[in-house]
Design a protein around this nucleic acid. Sequence first.
RNA 1: GGCCCGUUCGUCUAUCGGUUAGGACACCUGGUUUUCAACCAGGUAAGAGGGGUUCGACUCCCCUACGGGCUGCCA
Length: 468
Amino acid sequence: MPSPQTSHIVTRFAPSPTGFLHIGGGRTALFNWLFARGRGGKFLLRIEDTDRERSTPEATAAILRGLAWLGLDWDGDVVSQFDQKDRHAEVAHQMLARGTAYKCFSSQEEIAAFRAESTASYAVFRSPWRGADPASHPDLPYVIRMMAPQTGETLIEDEVQGRVVIKNETLDDMIVLRSDGTPTYMLAVVVDDHDMGVTHVIRGDDHLNNAARQQMVYDAMGWQVPVWAHIPLIHGPDGKKLSKRHGATGVEEYQAMGYPAAGMRNYLTRLGWAHGDMEIFTTDEAKAAFDLKGIGKAPARLDFKKLENTCGHHMAMAGDAALLHELQAYLAAAARPPLTEAQSELFLRGIYCVKDRAKTFADLLDKAQFMLATRPIVPDEAAQKSLDTVSRGILKSLTPQLQNVLWTKDGLEPILNHLASESGLGFAKLAAPIRAALAGRTTTPSVYDMMLVIGRNETIARLKEASA
RNA sequence: GGCCCGUUCGUCUAUCGGUUAGGACACCUGGUUUUCAACCAGGUAAGAGGGGUUCGACUCCCCUACGGGCUGCCA
């Protein structure tokens, strides 16, 4: 039964469609999603496309794909901020009517000149039109500025950052409606969050200062201020802001590299958030455990080793069919050919002996090569070395013995053990050429597992081929 | 320049005035083993610096240093 005070939670993710879904954005979305989903709330998606110059439908599509891959589903339709522009203008004019905003006729040149001249420490632009008599208004283009309080303080009660005090004198009368009648971000974000019923704004802490400005809009309209939670941004391994030179920054790149979505989710969840000593979470566990309190205030660095380790856990935890399904999606994302029906069947039969040692799907596929490959098996350099004359002779003597043996580990073991001691090689030395023959490489699952997975005929065929 | 935020092992973090400062990744050692991996056991490793407050400070306050953010008719 949902508890009444937690069932009205509404969070949102509001990216601007100017590129792919950034890994940091993915984490922000994840936090919002976890918070809402863990509390029976709603998670909404809004595309902040008011900047017509930079917004592209391709970017929106990429963001949606990224979210879908991460398994973050949203409630209702995707909201286009641009579509709400009339509503934004309406609110701007309401503010005008209420006297909490005013028309400013200062040109951009005038403002630029002010900024250039003011080397003073307090370079806050004060519009001369604040409080001007409407009768004195010229017939010129104007912007609508917020009538912001110029004294006193604005208090941000932030779930992550704590109580943050911003002195109002450091804030200017921000523009809410541009001279072309379109809204600025500062207005649009507030109007949309209010209209969409957003109760918790969880976003990057690059918006912490903006929260003060936005809070003024809430106050000007008499709207309820949402719960703020400004989370630190993700940094690269060197502690600098995450950028291209650190490697992958787009969520979809991680998919293409083969990281499982569940592992990615787990890693991102734990990056900058903790729940005691717990490290590995199923999605349900994460939803239940996630809270704003556990979010750290310092920026976290991306650590690929830990990402891999986390993904390894999830790879091992996953069901076989689910792994096959996600593997196929990975292959498509990485522009690689899908597994055929027959390969899929083999994969399902043999996946048990490779999945707990793989960290990514690329890794999994590589380790599964022995079952997916078709003859001739071409040994790599290291494997070739173990297929010397002596070894080939031994393999040759092995094949007839496999003809009628019971095809189980118990059936095979005595034969291989006997051959190992009889040849004087010992098991380790005997296993090497068998690995080379069956998989063409030196790093493989157990020889028994391989034989059982590929079957009697294929085993004999590969041994014959290698010993010929 | 101004304002805001941050700083515990290499990394992610626990700690919410009194702990031998805990866990995870990585690393090292040992064990197991059919190579690698996995697995098991153990180990190295931390409170940026300086002042306070306090019987006692990683924890509260101040300063400094360093890092980040904001300061747009971008979002």
